[in-house]
């Protein structure tokens, strides 16, 4: 099935007792640029991954991965996952364990050892090859778990919180690794670090309370051209709304919630450089009002957008 979507769900639901972790999820994901899966805690991201991989059975609806049900033998080795909480076998060197997983993917014993060494090199842990898992730090184990997703040539790689628990340098290296490999396979990345998602992904799926709230390209979602988002030193006064609305081309002004110290200014772009002129006028109005900013973003950060879209209504 060469043209089948990599993931297709219809009316997918998963309950835990009375809790609906996933509720009528209809989603079709195509192969291509990395896809982010975001949402607040309890949104259903890990449950969604678990259903995609066959760890959990859906309560309702259907799910297909690469045109097949998740546990179908045709899918074996073509989908890889970084599970959030799976452990390696204690007492057995990590390279041996990776080699065993590679053998399960069809490598001969000798080729599997070489493949294990290759993926350890990818995550910069060649030195840890002979060590047992209990000898390694949490961050190193995370990298080993990432390494196992690169064994062979999986077409779809599901990464659940790939940079959580990693120091900033290692997290950056892992992101570079994902970027370097994203032409060969489709990554679906679940993360609370929305900056990572914004940097890595072409599109994003937002889940909230088990439902899909949005599925769009990141560039469309964050409205790169028609919003100015400010992080301020203090919460802005209500009066600033009227002042900024009076600036030419400004269509709407949004204040963050108390304590968020945030301000978003929506404007219309007309004519060449119109956006820049509006930007300067808005900055002048803020300075005149004595409002000090820490950071200005042309567009809206993904984080702001996700917070906005998943904010409780009450």
């Amino acid at each position: 099935m060469p043209d089948a979507p990599i993931i297709k769900t219809e009316g997918l639901g998963r309950d835990f007792g009375r809790t609906r972790a996933l509720d009528s999820v209809d989603l079709t994901l195509e192969a291509g640029a990395p896809i982010g899966l975001v949402g607040p805690n309890g949104a259903g991201k890990t449950t969604f991954f678990s259903v995609l991989c066959g760890f959990l059975r859906p309560t309702r609806g259907s799910v297909e991965v690469l045109g097949r049900p998740p546990l179908h033998r045709d899918v074996h080795g073509r989908v890889a996952i970084l599970p959030q909480d799976a452990a390696f076998v204690r007492g057995v060197p990590v390279q041996s364990q990776l080699a065993m997983l590679a053998e399960l993917q069809g490598f001969s014993a000798k080729a599997a050892r070489a493949e294990a060494a290759r993926v350890l090199q990818l995550v910069l842990l060649a030195d840890a090859a002979k060590k047992a898992p209990e000898m390694l730090s949490h961050g190193m184990l995370k990298r080993i778990a990432i390494a196992q997703t690169f064994l062979g040539a999986p077409e779809v790689v599901l990464l659940d919180e790939p940079t959580a628990g990693l120091d900033p340098t290692t997290a950056s290296e892992m992101k570079n690794l994902i970027r370097s490999l994203d032409k060969e396979r489709t990554f679906v990345i679940s993360s609370h670090n929305l900056q990572d998602i914004e940097e890595l992904c072409g599109s994003v799926v937002i889940l909230d309370r088990g439902k899909i709230v949005e599925h769009r390209k990141v560039a469309e979602l964050v409205g790169r051209t028609s919003i100015l988002t400010f992080r301020l030193e203090a919460d802005p006064p209500e009066a600033i709304v009227a002042k900024l609305t009076s600036v030419a081309m400004v269509t709407r002004v949004e204040l963050g919630r108390p304590g968020e110290r945030r301000l978003a200014v929506h404007f219309r772009e007309e004519g060449e450089g119109g956006g820049n002129k509006t930007q300067i006028a808005v900055l002048q109005a803020l300075t005149a009002a004595g409002i000090n900013m820490i950071e200005m973003t042309r567009g809206q950060s993904l984080q702001d957008k996700v917070i906005e879209m998943t904010r409780p209504t009450s």
């Binding site: 991989c53 066959g54 760890f55 546990l71 033998r73 899918v75 074996h76 080795g77 989908v79 890889a80 996952i81 599970p83 909480d85 799976a86 452990a87 390696f88 076998v89 997983l101 399960l104 993917q105 196992q148």
Partner: peptide
């Protein structure tokens, strides 16, 4: 038991049948 308890099985299931 250990496969299930430590969730090591999650490394196996994408590669082999239950």
């Amino acid at each position: 038991a250990t496969d299930l308890g430590t969730r090591h099985i999650r490394f196996l299931i994408p590669r082999v049948g239950r």
